[in-house]
């Protein structure tokens, strides 16, 4: 079974984001970059599928040279091959989807995995765009997956519940929390990953179809007041309800 896993390099979720001087990008200074957590789920599912059925797992990313560290992480987790579609920082989700689709057309994978979204820009467009360009069925936000021969059955999280969907291979699956518990890269595998080659191909740096004009971080204010049961606090509460909220 040939499996393609599309991954991305994103700022660590605990990063305190600072907007760059142009007002429309993230200042990368001091930011720790990691493998997108949803892509970890996608990769883990691919690795388990390979362990069960044989075959190989190729991890691919579209981005700048810095993304090799993310691919190295994927190799250390157990991916067999890694591909960097190297170019400028991708303009938007569509340009990433086109680049990924170009590679997928050559590789002809049985299944393509992605995280349901990247935790940097959260546009949630990539899995559907990729499937559409390739003309493949796509199941998104999958939290449980069974593949038996070419039959695919997936549980999806929907508002307030679950939905069970089926399709056949080849298809595109986007991973949601709960799908699995991703493994840590093991030291011996990190040492082996160091020696594995990373294939580089040039990206078609497509013009952006959507453009970011501005980014801003909401101001954090302490708006709530915490009051106890002391006499002063009760008096304060009454005053606030009377004068500020004007409800009594």
């Amino acid at each position: 079974m040939n499996i393609l896993v599309c991954i991305s390099r994103v700022p660590d979720t605990a990063t305190k984001v600072i907007i760059g001087s142009d007002g429309k990008s993230i200042d990368p200074k001091g930011v720790k970059y990691i493998l997108n957590p949803y892509d970890e789920l996608a990769l883990e599912e691919a690795l388990r599928l390979r362990e069960k059925n044989g075959g190989n797992v190729t991890a691919i990313t579209v981005g700048t040279a810095e993304a090799t560290e993310t691919l190295r992480n994927a190799l250390a987790m157990g991916a067999d091959n890694a591909v960097l579609v190297k170019g400028d920082e991708p303009a938007d989700s569509y340009s990433v989807a086109v680049n990924l689709a170009d590679y997928a057309k050559k590789m002809n994978p049985d299944v393509i995995f992605l995280g349901k979204q990247s935790v940097d820009f959260d546009s949630l467009q990539l899995p559907s765009m990729l499937a559409e360009i390739l003309g493949l069925p796509s199941i998104s936000v999958v939290s449980k997956l069974t593949i038996d021969g070419t039959n695919v059955s997936a549980e999806r999280d929907i508002e307030g519940g679950k939905e069970v969907v089926s399709t056949t291979l080849p298809c595109v699956i986007s991973a949601q929390k709960g799908l699995n518990d991703p493994r840590y890269p093991k030291l011996p595998d990190i040492m082996k990953a160091k020696k594995k080659p990373i294939e580089e191909i040039a990206s078609n740096n497509l013009d952006a179809r959507t453009v970011v004009h501005k980014m801003e971080i909401p101001l954090k204010e302490r708006k709530a007041k915490i009051l106890g049961d002391s006499v002063q606090d009760i008096e304060m509460l009454v005053t606030l309800l009377h004068e500020d909220a004007k409800v009594i």
């Binding site: 930011v31 090799t68 560290e69 030291l187 160091k194």
Partner: peptide
């Protein structure tokens, strides 16, 4: 997880696999 204190950008001196293992 928060990035750890690295006031003098020492992470730049460690190799990719050293950082990957440390962070793992």
């Amino acid at each position: 997880m928060q990035k750890s204190l690295d006031y003098l950008n020492l992470d730049e001196l460690y190799s990719e696999e050293e950082i990957l293992f440390r962070d793992t």
